[in-house]
Write a protein that binds this DNA or RNA. Structure first.
Lengths: 227, 227
DNA sequence: CCGTTAGATTACAATTCCGTAACGTGTCGT
DNA sequence: ACGACACGTTACGGAATTGTAATCTAACGG
């Protein structure tokens, strides 16, 4: 496990690094907020240990900026203050846990384990079916490592299919959810978009995921099974 | 608080409804999975109490489909089985808590309170600065109740500005994050897009949010303050 | 006060995206 | 085997999106 330590006190920093490395973690230790933010933004750490009292940029500020940038790496905040107020601020700013100095090293380890486990099982904003995954935040798809660019409607179509993976999605459903519409069947918009989608997510691969169910609609399935 | 109860056992269902209503909650009680899913999808409930053993569509299936549709309403699962296995399945399918029958009513209440509170403070996938908010999932913006349609690049530009709200965003930063690019300054793409963005989020309102900092770049601020 | 410069605004052209229509292909029932 | 029908494929035109360039406006320095 990779840990980023942001701690200006050399004694404590060194102790943390030593203890964590003995516990089998690899550490990066920086001593000011500026570099702490940079390292954290690089997203190479699985968890961050962040002191609140720092020169230059305060720990709270680092935390706030980190979260604003959309980085959700779990953060454990250290502070000399035991004030409830501070604790509230920290948690509001996006900390996952809080530890008051002085503390016992085993407790730090225990808390780090808890928050990393929790963050791992958090639902990431991503959908997937078998080898295909959609990243909702960036609106891109990926299959077997390859990035797939989708137009807005292609993405919405695929998203809807994936949310109903394994179930047949009827034309009617698509009309109502992707267009506004009651018309349904006036044109062949759907077939056209299904076709374009297939050419992107299935054409270049062995196993087709998007199947048509004659007379009913379409299904997307993770295994290759046609029905 | 609005509670949706999905429970086929009439005795238990009635008891739950009575108890919850006495505690000041308003309840909707349905007795099968199909209607449970429909009601839950309507998103009128703040929390769902879901029995696992149901006729037609099983509780697990209801839960799974609900989550696949992107609905995050907290769900408390009820089950006669105390098997660890079942519990794991339930939690994996997206349950927020688990209660084994028979149970004491106060415990149910306590757990409902915990999971609703937790879900409320969960970070919704939305950014906001003052009167402006961005919904990341649907890629739309809203200001003072009015929906604002943004093109893909406009949205990315605004998102980046909002994530750095209060800080000046330089041209260099924009070039690197929104385009790939090292060119920076060859053309005036940025000014043009800023202009288009302003015409949508500021033009029709009293207080401008997007300010230019001469020689540095742009800031977005929730209060009207120019600097 | 004037020239310089940064930024705003507008116009325009290239590209992309989307819905329609026409046509091709395969499947099913008889 | 044949026709009907469902779906696939391709081509085309209009609309939206995006980057470039030209022009206009406002701030700043001296």
């Amino acid at each position: 496990m990779d840990v980023l330590i942001v701690e200006d006190d050399a004694l404590l920093g060194k102790a943390l690094q030593k203890g964590l490395e003995e516990a089998g973690c690899s550490c990066v230790w920086v001593t000011d907020g500026k570099r702490g933010l940079d390292e954290a933004l690089a997203q190479n750490a699985d968890v961050v240990v962040l002191d609140l009292m720092l020169p230059e940029v305060s720990g709270l500020e680092v935390l706030r900026r980190l979260r604003r940038q959309g980085v959700h790496t779990p953060v454990l905040v250290l502070s000399a203050l035991s004030e409830v107020d501070e604790r509230v601020h920290g948690l509001q700013a996006g900390a996952d846990d809080y530890l008051v100095k002085p503390f016992a090293f085993p407790e730090l380890m225990a808390r780090l384990n808890v928050i990393t486990r929790r963050s791992q099982q958090q639902t990431t904003p991503t959908l997937s079916v078998g080898p295909l995954s959609l990243e909702l935040s960036s609106r891109t798809a990926e299959r077997e490592g390859r990035r797939i660019d989708l137009t807005p409607t292609e993405f919405r179509l695929l998203e809807y299919l994936v949310r109903n993976a394994g179930d047949v999605v009827t034309r009617r459903m698509l009309c109502e959810h992707l267009w506004d519409a009651d018309w349904e069947g006036v044109t062949n918009v759907i077939e056209v978009h299904i076709n374009r989608l297939r050419s992107k997510i299935d054409r270049d691969f062995d196993m087709p995921l998007l199947h048509t169910v004659r007379g009913r609609g379409y299904v997307i399935r993770g295994d290759g099974a046609g029905r």
